[in-house]
């Protein structure tokens, strides 16, 4: 028999709780089967990826079975509402409160109705792109054009984290060319495929995308209909600086930093630039027992102290970012309040 296959079979069996040791006699703070529901239904997206890495680490650390279930935001919140014992927890990103700030259906105020758990990682990849042949060389060109009565059509998914960049751009135009912000118009669309298609068809001037999904498109020869250029990466500079120097694909960290603040300026108020990190964190039932919160905090603290998870996360272009539940609660509440100001201003 081949070694690899054996390894595979062994890992599969080990993953099944058939071989797991029976529950210890002492009262455990966490269930043997921890269900991590996520706010996305895709297994190919960043939420699933981060959750899978974290679940794997938690399983090993605690000797439990942590399983990721991609059920989507509404179903995930419903699932943790029923789980005060902490056997089901949720992992999602800033969308969980941004959705509420934009007034999207199915997004309650998580700070009121749920409990915020620890943060685990950041995806610094949120980006805006133009066609390779676009007259707009950079964000300054885009803002100037909008200020001089050119319509700028931006393809985004409405009501989400990706819409924040659009809101920020609109706000920047308003700050610099008051009254001209109406020239920035959204093209509401869904998947990355649809956004790319809008660019190919010439039905959008600027699209929201990501470093991960669009990097290869930026390296196509300029005469290719599919060729694109990055103009803006919305992550904070200090976040992006923590990425591996190789960056992603053939685009180095140095190159990526050229598209982020302060090299690119989309102003928030004339002084400060807008930047936004997409952070992944746990969300719990409001009445979750404190032992469960402490157990997850403790396990994650140990995992991040050991340092192996950082490598795994960075390999997939995530920035490790652990913050225990209590700190995360205050930090994210402040972040949400800041974001609310921007959204309310531009509504």
């Amino acid at each position: 028999m081949n070694r690899l296959v054996l390894k595979f079979v062994a890992s599969t069996l080990a993953a099944s709780s058939l071989l797991a040791t029976p529950a210890a006699a002492e009262q455990k703070a966490l269930a043997d089967n921890l269900r991590i529901v996520i706010g996305s239904t895709s297994t190919g997206g960043d939420t699933y990826q981060v959750s899978a890495i974290v679940a794997e680490a938690l399983s090993k650390k605690l000797g439990i079975n942590a399983k990721v279930d991609p059920v989507g935001p509404t179903a995930a919140l419903q699932a943790i509402s029923k789980s005060a014992d902490g056997s089901t927890v949720m992992l999602f990103h800033d969308q969980s409160y941004v959705g509420n700030l934009y007034g999207v259906r199915g997004f309650p105020d998580i700070f009121k109705e749920y409990k915020i758990g620890p943060t685990v990682a950041i995806n610094p990849g949120d980006a805006f792109l133009v066609p390779a042949k676009s007259p707009y060389k950079n964000m300054e060109d885009v803002i100037q054009a909008a200020g001089h009565d050119k319509r700028i059509r931006v393809a985004i998914q409405p009501g989400g984290v990706s819409a924040l960049g659009y809101t920020a751009l609109k706000n920047a135009v308003e700050v610099r060319f008051p009254g001209k912000e109406g020239n920035v118009v959204p093209v509401n669309t869904g998947s990355q495929a649809d956004k790319n298609q809008l660019l190919f068809d010439g039905n959008a001037d600027l699209i929201n995308g990501s470093v991960q999904a669009n990097e290869q498109y930026t390296r196509l020869p300029a005469d290719d209909q599919k060729a694109m250029r990055f103009v803006w990466i919305t992550a904070r500079q200090q976040t992006l600086q923590q990425a591996d120097p190789e960056g992603l694909g053939q685009t180095s960290r140095e190159q990526l930093l050229n598209y982020a603040t302060p090299a690119v300026s989309v102003t928030l108020d004339g002084k400060k630039n807008f930047a936004f990190d997409k952070e992944f964190f746990f969300i719990y039932n409001a009445d979750i027992k404190p032992e469960a919160v402490a157990a997850i905090d403790k396990a994650l603290a140990d995992i991040y102290a050991e340092g192996a998870i950082q490598g795994t996360l960075k390999k997939s272009f995530f920035i490790p970012n652990f913050m225990p539940a209590k700190d995360a609660q205050t930090y994210l509440k402040d972040k949400a309040d800041e974001t609310r100001k921007l959204i309310d201003k531009i509504k």
């Binding site: 999904a213 290869q216 390296r219 196509l220 694909g249």
Partner: peptide
């Protein structure tokens, strides 16, 4: 769509240059 997860989990991007 699920298969794409296998690539991202291994840190490989699929795209026009894949």
């Amino acid at each position: 769509a699920v298969l794409i997860g296998a690539f991202t989990l291994q840190g490989i991007q699929v795209g026009p240059l894949f």
